[in-house]
Amino acid sequence: MIEKFTEKLVILLQGNIPEKIDTCKITDERELNLANMLNQLIAFVHEIHDFIIPLSKGELAEIKISPKNFFGSPFKELHSRLLHLTWQANQVANGDYSQRVDFMGDFSEAFNNMIVSLDNNEKLLKKKIDELEGALSHIIKLEGILPICSFCKKIRMEGTDPEDQTNWLQIEGYISERTEAQFSHSVCPKCMKKYYPDY
């Protein structure tokens, strides 16, 4: 019988799950007691094995470890924490930056720093977007075909009577009124020669 028990333990120590010991034919009370305990150990290891393999692949299915399997308790705790982290990550994905992870060592610090960074970056981006939208609201876009006089270069205001001279504006006045651009008046070299030949 000792050989049979040893064989089961060797299989366990090799990381495999042995068949339970058939206790029907054991008559010695001490051997029966030992066989029952060994069967319980095999059952516990089997439960943990079946639970931890899917967990190692990220499968957070329902837990199947019996309450008295104390070897399995830390894995159940780990499973619970992973479920909670999954929920928290979903919350963060939906914009809830109030989430914080407690009492998980270095992971807590890393996760919490990540959330603070995400929160700060989003606030910064929103601020930039507000600033840009504010700036855009001050700029009137100039687009389309502008009617311009081929000789004096005055521009006619949109939708006005071309025969009415007051509807024709100096180009710098036209642009200044419609954009943030300002003009400073100067003279180019060619015009300088033309209009101030003696200067």
């Binding site: 019996s66 309450p67 008295k68 399997n69 104390f70 308790s73 830390p74 159940k76 705790e77 619970s80």
Partner: peptide
């Protein structure tokens, strides 16, 4: 549904 007193390490 789970309790430290029933062999778990947390209460669910």
């Amino acid at each position: 549904i789970d309790c430290w007193a029933s062999g778990d390490r947390l209460c669910r």
